[in-house]
Design a protein around this nucleic acid. Structure first.
Length: 495
RNA sequence: CGGGGCGUAGCGCAGCCUGGUUAGCGCGUGUGGUUUGGGACCACAAGGUCGCGGGUUCGAAUCCCGCCGCCCCGACCA
């Protein structure tokens, strides 16, 4: 019989589903890129849509995104932001008002030219980002310093017509959040941009268990229209860097473009200071590539749609009803505390279930068979290490929440160790090229700050400057041009 | 846009070169039964515009022409 409160349902993505393919995943060592795609598709996180470059986010992938959204949204609210929604379609002329912005985004805009059966008077751009339409509206809402700051965020989809796409990492349409704030002072706006980068960093570390480097982007890699772009950069298991979140101090660029002025305390008109900041469904891809292994996805418990799955193991001649009942009894005290389900499907074998839940990255599995029942125990298995821990059923109830926390911090520790092990230094350009080629990862090397050197290094090695840190070590000479002063900045081949 | 590969059942493929019964195999799917501690087994069954359009031919998945789409690798990017 069912115990009260414990759902029988296998959650989104596997609702009483039958088995499908049994093909093995591509191994990381064989083809990293294919390994990634295998996990994303086989774990049923996403699938290719009929339109090139577009993807369907399936329930298992979307559930991860929902958990990310919730955590981030709470953090945004805790820092004083409110949610709102601006429209998908933007008059093309809006994009053109900010010179760098239009230059940056025009090449990748999808444009609507027809409505119904009529040609539109002015083409409408499907938002690649919303600064322009938001600042057009801010003009209406801001008159005085008393109207400021405006701390707005929206959860939305955007479209960027990319040449080359990859599930989650780069798709023509993606989901994200974009914060857009307006401030009465430069200092305050800069602080906001830095604060939100801090939020992203904390989210990456505390929720995704993904350590990051944080800093500013070089002039050449700034967001189109930004004065300063801040970034967090993560390191994937193949040694490539991934930009995981950005925050921009926009200065008065958009306020000027849209003529948004406010009267300051002294009664003078002044352009409003702006920031914007965003993270996207790319984070789901980052998550996959941070922790997963050759058996499939490995999820940090805090973002796992399902944290614990209990697999009852029936046996001929055993009291299988009792086994299943014990499984539900085991789950009951944990319901509400952790996301837990009993996988009582009878059309697949326990072995199948083990593999499937490992593929899907569920952090903890509890096996419960006749032998366990006799001993009053259950076998608790960690997804991240594979470690099997027999423990009494009573102990499991209070051990499991602790174990989940342990897994969360252990994933972070492991990823951090990997990041640190993959931060190397080079002083000469020859040495730099060697390290980039042989080891990958972040390579810290002296750079004079010129766009020319940055560009040439990028062209010749594929490694780009990921960020510039305030604590960057000063060096006498750039590794390329030999001029000084230079700073030591992390380069990496990136996604 | 350049280079490479592919398009035949839900998935993975064979067949094509050398045209010819009713287009095949594995996995999966449905039903019934036995099973279940690391991807179980038996029986029966369902499932196909051979990417699209044209041509050659008595006859085309197969040969010819055109088109479309997708994937992978490069140039733009969260």
């Amino acid at each position: 019989m069912l115990l009260a409160g414990v759902s029988r349902r296998i959650p989104a993505g596997s609702e009483g589903r039958s088995p499908r393919s049994v093909a093995k995943l591509t191994k990381r060592s064989e083809d990293y890129s294919q390994w990634y795609l295998d996990i994303v598709t086989r774990a049923e996180m996403a699938d290719y849509a009929p339109v090139k470059g577009c993807m369907v986010i399936r329930p298992w992938g979307y559930a991860i995104w929902e958990r990310m959204q919730r955590a981030l949204d709470d953090m945004f609210k805790a820092t004083g932001h409110v949610n709102c929604y601006f429209p998908l379609l933007i008059p093309q002329s809006f994009l053109q008002k900010e010179a760098e912005h239009v230059e940056g985004f025009a090449p990748e805009c999808a444009v609507v030219t027809r409505g119904g059966d009529k040609e539109l008077e002015e083409p409408l751009v499907i938002r690649p980002t919303s600064e322009t339409i938001i600042w057009a509206m801010y003009k209406k809402w801001i008159q005085s310093w008393r109207d400021l700051p405006l701390l707005y965020n929206q959860w939305a989809n955007v479209v960027r017509w990319e040449m080359r796409t990859r599930l989650f990492l780069r798709t023509a349409e993606f989901l994200w959040q974009e914060g857009h704030t307006a401030h009465a002072g430069q200092q305050e706006a800069v602080e906001e941009a830095e604060r939100m980068l801090g939020v992203y960093r904390r989210f990456a570390e505390d929720w995704m268990a993904m350590p990051v480097l944080a800093g500013r982007k070089s002039e050449g890699q700034k967001f189109p229209g930004a004065v300063t772009t801040y970034t967090i950069e993560a390191l994937m298991q193949d040694g490539k860097a991934l930009q995981a979140g950005t925050s921009h101090y926009l200065g008065q660029n958009f306020a000027r473009a849209f003529d948004v002025q406010f009267q300051n305390r002294d009664g003078q008109l002044e352009y409003v200071y702006a920031t914007s900041w965003g993270v996207s469904t790319r984070l789901v891809g980052a998550l996959v590539m941070s922790h997963s292994d050759d058996a499939g996805l490995v999820l940090p418990p805090r973002l796992a749609p399902l944290e614990v799955v209990i697999v009852p193991i029936p046996k001929a001649g055993a009291d299988n009803a009792a086994i299943e009942q014990a499984a539900y009894r085991l789950a009951e005290p944990l319901e509400g505390k952790v996301r837990i389900r009993v996988d009582d499907r009878d059309n697949v074998s326990p072995g199948w279930k083990f593999n499937e839940w490992e593929l899907k990255g569920v952090p903890v599995r509890i096996e419960l068979g006749p032998k366990d029942l006799q001993k009053g125990q259950a076998v608790v298995v960690r997804r991240d290490t594979g470690q099997k821990m027999p423990m009494s059923q009573d102990a499991a109830a209070f051990e499991v929440p602790r174990l989940l926390e342990e897994i969360q911090s252990s994933l972070f520790a492991k990823a951090k160790a990997r990041l640190e092990a993959n931060c190397r230094s080079a002083d000469s350009y020859d040495g730099f090229k060697k390290v980039v080629e042989r080891d990958g990862g972040f390579v810290l090397a002296p750079w004079c700050g010129s766009r020319e050197c940055e560009g040439r290094i990028g062209d010749e090695t594929k490694a780009t400057i990921r960020l510039i840190s305030d604590e960057a070590e000063e060096c006498p000479a750039c590794m390329l041009c030999g001029k000084g002063p230079a700073r030591r900045v992390p380069f990496a081949v990136s996604y």
